[in-house]
Each structure stands twice: as structure tokens, then as C-alpha cells.
Design a protein around this nucleic acid. Structure first.
Lengths: 107, 107
DNA sequence: TCAATGATTCAAATATCGTTGAATTATGGA
DNA sequence: TCCATAATTCAACGATATTTGAATCATTGA
């Protein structure tokens, strides 16, 4: 991932609705969720949700597919992994960082 | 870290200048850097840099101290670690995530 | 105390982001 | 084909964020 891709992904996640949408989809797993289900679960208007789903998708964090008249959004785990790797790469160059991020070992 | 803290930190990092400033300070380590040195290294005007340093500091990602007439900024590794932990916490709930983020094991 | 240096704050202009309702596209079933 | 459903796109408005030069604050050394 290039610097601009990282910035785009960070910007996409740096919004209350989008962060909640992304987390909901991470929890939902491979089955993903429809905009209708997400909108109901998070109490977000269809138009507003559509705008944010587009932002997340264009940032590369979500994958979209269709099932009949439903669209299905899923978290792109590989992309999230790449973002984590980029941040971790810089985070772990110095000694203090290793001590400060012990949770990384959970992976 | 609360959701709002996470959003603030992500928003702070989601900007070209601020991401470069933060990375420069991570590389600089405990000694930190002055705004003058950062401005020269990254070719950013003093006023603009000051604005972004304030953003990063208020987001909790930087620590500020004074040495004579120089200010010294340092990356807050603990905060960065907490941010990584929050993202990792959600990232690692499902199986796909573990496979997608192998670099986490470098920590 | 005064001048010089390092850095920030302020105010104004520009650019970008976020929300909303109305209109539009896509699909499935009668 | 026609209607209902699921979701998006469009346009306009208001809210935020970013940049810039001028002014201000803090500190050191003469």
C-alpha cells in the first residue's frame, strides 16, 4: 500500500458511522451484511449510509457483491491486514514501541 | 481509548503532512525533533506545521516539551500502541483476519 | 532592558466533507 | 409488462478542515 492508500484508509475509518459500519462488518464475517441490515442495526438513513459505504469501498476496506436485489458488503480483511502492517512497520522500529504494543502478539 | 479517541487519532494520521510528521518522530525516537527541524526535513511552512503539530498533539499522538527556546515533539508510543491494540482487537476476532495480518507477529 | 530567534495564535479565504430529500437504477414476482 | 422493493445517485446546503501572512508570545544572550 502506498502512502496515499494508507491515508485514504485512515480517513475512511476516522468517522463515527464508518468506523461502526466497518466493525459491524468485521464481526459479521464472510457473510457480510446488506445496507438495509446495517442501516437498521446502526440507525443510519439509507442515503447517508450509502454515502459512507461508498467511501469505505473506494478506500479499499469493503468488498461489494450482489445477491438478487440485495447488495452485500464485507470487510476486506486482507486490506485491513495491510494497513495494520504499514502502521506496525513504523510502530515497531524502536524499542519503546515493542513495549507499548504487546497486544500485537495476540495475532 | 474510547471510540471518539480512536476516531480523533485516525483522523490525525489521515493527512499527508501529519502522517509524515508522525513517522519522522517515530524514527527520531526519544530525542524527538523541533518544529524547525521537522519543517526543514519535510519542507512545510512554520505556520502550517504548527497547525498540524497541534492536531497530532491534541489527538494524543505527540508529546511536547521545551528545551530553552526550542519546543521538542516526540511520538507517544504508548498511545500509538493503544490505537494498534484497538484496531487489532477488532481485526483479530475472526479467522480470516489472523491469516491476513501475519506481520503483527513481528512485534 | 532590548534585540533576535523559535514557535504559536489569529483571522480570513478556500477547499473538502457530510447530510438530506427527490429522482433514478436494478431486480424479482404477480 | 407493471408494481414493489433495495439501494444508489444527484444537487444543494451547512459544517469542518486547511492554508497563509501578519501579529503575538516565550526565551536567550548582549
Amino acid at each position: 500500500m502506498e502512502e496515499q492508500d494508507i491515508i485514504r484508509a485512515l480517513a475512511a475509518l476516522a468517522h463515527e458511522i464508518r468506523l461502526r459500519v466497518f466493525r459491524a462488518l468485521v464481526v459479521a464475517g464472510p457473510d457480510g451484511m446488506t445496507p438495509g441490515a446495517l442501516g437498521e442495526a446502526l440507525s443510519v438513513a439509507p442515503t447517508t449510509l450509502s454515502f459512507h459505504l461508498k467511501e469505505l469501498t473506494q478506500a479499499g476496506l469493503l468488498l461489494q457483491s450482489r445477491d438478487g436485489r440485495h447488495l452485500i458488503y464485507r470487510a476486506d480483511y486482507a486490506r485491513m491486514g495491510a494497513l495494520m502492517a504499514y502502521l506496525t512497520e513504523n510502530c515497531c522500529r524502536g524499542t519503546p514501541c515493542v513495549e507499548a504494543a504487546p497486544s500485537c502478539t495476540n495475532c
